[in-house]
């Protein structure tokens, strides 16, 4: 039980003061989706709370514009 959850390594490192995550960077955003097109949890993305919020907003915008799928 001690090792029941092994944290998977973060997908990508990101500095909080990097330029804002762009909803138009679809290839980048795609890395943070599960095969079912759900957004990865903060634990799995490796993002801080702020960056994760930015990521979510960007993905939602991309979905709204038909750039990314809601479900796979």
């Amino acid at each position: 039980m001690a090792e029941s959850r092994k944290p998977s390594p973060p997908i990508a490192s990101r500095h909080c003061d990097d330029p804002k995550i762009d909803y138009k960077e679809v290839a980048y955003l795609q890395k943070f989706l599960t095969p079912q097109a759900q957004i990865l949890s903060r634990k799995r993305s490796g993002f801080c709370t702020q960056c994760q919020r930015e990521l979510k907003a960007a993905i939602k915008r991309a979905r709204h514009m038909g750039l990314m799928a809601f479900v796979q």
Binding site: K24, R63, G66, L67, M68, A69, F70
Partner: peptide, 11 residues
């Protein structure tokens, strides 16, 4: 013009 693309879902 930013791009012309296949949509991720039909609109």
């Amino acid at each position: 013009r930013w791009d012309e693309r296949k949509l991720a879902y039909p609109i």
